[in-house]
Write a protein that binds this DNA or RNA. Structure first.
Length: 135
DNA sequence: GCCAACGTTGGC
DNA sequence: GCCAACGTTGGC
């Protein structure tokens, strides 16, 4: 099983909305790298939900429930998406500032490629962040 | 609101 | 195929 991180501006789509809705297609990605990452996702993979711009913190955990398929909101037909189910909130959000200041997380894609909206998370990074959220 | 980073477009 | 111009993302 692999781990991921997906960003959303809470103004556009928030974790609270996703929790209430349950399962939601991750529409709107218009970047090949991000789209390719979703293509790699398998049913059952887990992803962090990150609030960009407002909050700047990881707030929840989602699970891939439907693998890559075309994004109907993309008129060019180039980009696809997956469906994510909200699994649970972190006990405590883990902020970008914390991630930046943690040597164990300094290589995270989130930091290395700040504009990428769907990125890969290693198993050790994933576990580290879960541990931080439980402190 | 500004700006750095970076992706995309389009002319050549 | 290169690269300048432009647009977008996202942190600060």
């Amino acid at each position: 099983m692999q781990h991921w991180l997906a960003k959303s501006e809470p103004d556009a789509w928030s974790w609270q909305q996703h929790l209430k809705k349950g399962v939601e297609p991750w529409t709107g990605v218009r970047n090949y790298q991000a789209s390719n990452n979703m293509k790699e996702m398998k049913k059952g993979d887990l992803a962090f939900f990150y609030h960009s711009n407002i909050g700047k913190e990881i707030v929840g955990i989602m699970q891939v429930v439907k693998e890559y398929y075309p994004d109907p909101t993309d008129e060019t037909g180039r980009f696809g998406m997956v469906d994510f189910k909200a699994v649970k909130s972190l006990k405590r959000p883990v902020t970008l500032a914390e991630i930046k200041s943690d040597p164990a997380l300094k290589d995270m894609k989130l930091l290395r490629q700040s504009r990428l909206s769907v990125s890969f998370v290693t198993k050790s990074e994933w576990e580290h962040i879960i541990r931080l959220s439980e402190i």
